[in-house]
């Protein structure tokens, strides 16, 4: 069977020590049995390693940061499309998803570019600040949490959740407070840095397990592979991990993806308590950087995503190999100054 030739634009080429998912997604696509894929890289910085990986990325373009607005992003994508004739776009950065989700229908209607992302409402429903409600709605346990605006609220929440208590910033930072005094201390530290509100979260102890998954938007989970980190960098990123045989976790994932009608790739982060309960800590609205492990275990999630984006019907994967490891490695590319010059001055490489 001859493979269908398509062009896919992928962002997140920052394959650095805290990597973006772009390169792993591209590797999945390049190994597709259905598609022969030409890859267009979309970059924000001139030193994203993927720019220089010419065996994976066929051509790259700089795109404007999300902070400069959707209009300039749309203009730039229209220009890129006029040269490359894109079939699908896969955004991989958290910060850019809002813009791409809003632009999705316009890209499809005006330029014929497909994407496969949740709608804005579903996207927002899994936000850190409303995750507890998300859990109630989709029948998955989430540590209790409450947004607070003043340290005076800590004691009441502490009495209800119990100590220790996790004190979290709106976007980043989390500390575990053993006493109300410590919690007040963290409140001030974190709010000084990230502003209000502060999120107080019930502390759940156990082992962290993660799932990379993909939903079809109609309530079907197309694929899911659970993984436990074996080695963690000082930034808390997995440097090695192993796929797990965990039917209960797969069942929970199916429920979350199914009930929320999730459309696209995602990563679910769980804590498995010593008594065997699973608590959802976070749901990332895109593939994780370790998504290539899923490909290695027999589920090519990036390929499935592209197929669904193009309107093909994709049957759920039925199995995956457990006990497969991923072990990340870093690699020094040698790059000519001329290449850096090209991307820096022309915005294309």
């Amino acid at each position: 069977m001859s493979k269908r030739k398509i062009t896919v634009a992928v962002s997140g080429l920052n394959n650095i020590d805290s990597p973006g998912p772009g390169i792993p997604v591209i590797r999945g696509l390049k190994e597709s049995s259905k598609f022969e894929v030409r890859i267009i890289g979309l970059s924000y910085e001139n030193l994203e390693p993927g720019l220089y990986l010419h065996d994976l990325v066929d051509k790259s373009y700089s795109i404007p940061l999300p902070s400069s607005g959707m209009d300039s992003l749309l203009q730039r994508l229209a220009y890129i499309n006029s040269i490359e004739n894109l079939d699908v776009i896969i955004p991989n950065f958290d910060a850019e998803l809002h813009s791409f989700i809003k632009l999705g229908p316009i890209l499809k209607r005006d330029y014929g570019i497909s994407s496969f992302m949740p709608d804005l409402e579903t996207f927002e429903s899994r936000h850190k600040s409303v995750l507890f409600e998300f859990g109630e709605k989709n029948e998955v346990k989430v540590p209790k949490s409450k947004m607070i605006f003043s340290p005076n609220e800590i004691l009441a929440v502490g009495n209800s959740f119990g100590f220790p208590l996790v004190v979290k910033g709106k976007y980043y930072d989390a500390s575990i407070a053993a006493t109300p005094e410590q919690a007040i201390n963290y409140f001030h530290k974190i709010s000084a840095k990230w502003g209000l509100p502060i999120i107080l979260q019930e502390f759940v102890s156990g082992n962290e397990v993660n799932v990379t998954a993909i939903g079809d938007g109609n309530g079907n989970c197309i694929g899911a592979v659970p993984m436990r980190k074996l080695y963690i960098t000082d930034k808390g990123k997995a440097w090695a991990g192993i796929s797990l045989l965990d039917d209960e976790l797969i069942e929970i994932t199916n429920r979350v993806i199914g009930n929320s009608k999730w459309r696209g790739g995602c990563e679910l982060e769980f804590i498995k308590t010593n008594s065997g309960d699973y608590y959802l800590l976070e749901m990332n609205p895109r593939f994780p950087a370790w998504v290539y492990l899923a490909v290695g275990c027999g589920q090519n999630h990036p390929e499935a995503l592209v197929a669904m984006a193009l309107g093909e019907e994709v049957k759920p994967f039925e199995s995956y190999q457990n006990g497969k490891l991923f072990v990340r490695y870093s690699f020094d590319q040698i790059v000519d100054l001329a290449e850096f010059e090209k991307i820096s001055t022309l915005g294309e490489l």
């Binding site: 030193l47 940061l65 400069s68 300039s72 203009q75 730039r76 820096s344 915005g347």
Partner: peptide
Amino acid sequence: KLNTGTMNKFGSRTEY
């Protein structure tokens, strides 16, 4: 100076 290129000239075309 090209600061490893966070911002680029494509960043704000509509602004100007």
